[in-house]
Design a binder for these strands. Structure first.
Lengths: 139, 139
DNA sequence: GTATCTGCAAAACATTTGCAATTCT
DNA sequence: AGAATTGCAAATGTTTTGCAGATAC
């Protein structure tokens, strides 16, 4: 996604495309590392030298409310963020702590017990050991 | 589960059955409300008048390590706990904030993209509006 | 020129840590 | 006594809030 496309994307979802907002969104989509607010702040602070963590938090809150970013609650002491809002799963490696995406659309599965509930968001998380770490352990 | 059965359950999983531990575990299984550490503390403080939050946290950590309790990370500012360790899903109502269980065994579904990953824990969360709240909105 | 956006400093809140007191065997 | 458990007080770390200054339209 180019800067122009990011701007359009933000505007389409009612978010005024200020520089911090564009940069934060760009970071989310180009690194796909599901960063924390702190990681985003550290990554961008050298470029946006007046950036504050408050703005990072404000911006992420705005993105979540505007449905262009979803919070990933896979670890209890940190919230991670993902600009891929399509239904998919997250896999967290217990060794290297990286968070990977995987294709899985929970909403595709008809969960009979939900009868009566009106679902809005679907979240699928798996924890375990990733391929790389499992391989390293064997070496 | 009776007190005697709770004791046995704790011992079987390597947890010495002290009074705070028994009471905290009893609270988890009898209320099934997926309480936070704070809610557990408030519920038990009047009975166990010397109870501290540290002990609640220590005990919950011990339960999680001993695999007799799982942390529920459905909300970013709170960790909830569930003594039902079988694979199942959680539904959080965005209106009344209650967390409900539903039958869903993610591990039953063969997730092809996981090839190479070694899964250990499966978590399924859905947010939306529960039956009761949806009904009230119509009244 | 008014509304929005940004960012500093302080506050809030859940959780963790260090360590001393207590309990259990 | 010795080991494990408990609990107070302080620290930690993330996120939120109040408000003032900057920016945009």
């Amino acid at each position: 996604m180019s800067i122009a496309e990011i701007k359009e994307h933000l505007i389409k979802h009612g978010v005024k495309p200020s520089l911090p907002r564009i940069k934060i969104f760009e970071y989310l989509i180009s690194y796909k590392s599901h960063p924390t607010a702190d990681e985003i702040y550290n990554a961008l602070a050298s470029e946006l030298i007046t950036l504050s963590k408050t703005t990072v938090y404000n911006t992420l809150d705005l993105f979540v409310k505007s449905k262009i970013t979803i919070p990933i609650l896979i670890e209890d002491n940190e919230t991670r963020f993902d600009a891929n809002t399509s239904n998919h799963g997250h896999f967290k490696c217990l060794r290297c702590n990286k968070v990977y995406d995987f294709d899985y659309d929970l909403s595709d599965h008809n969960i009979k017990e939900l009868a009566g509930f009106e679902p809005r968001e679907f979240h699928t998380y798996i924890k375990g050991v990733c391929k790389k770490c499992a391989q390293n352990a064997k070496d």
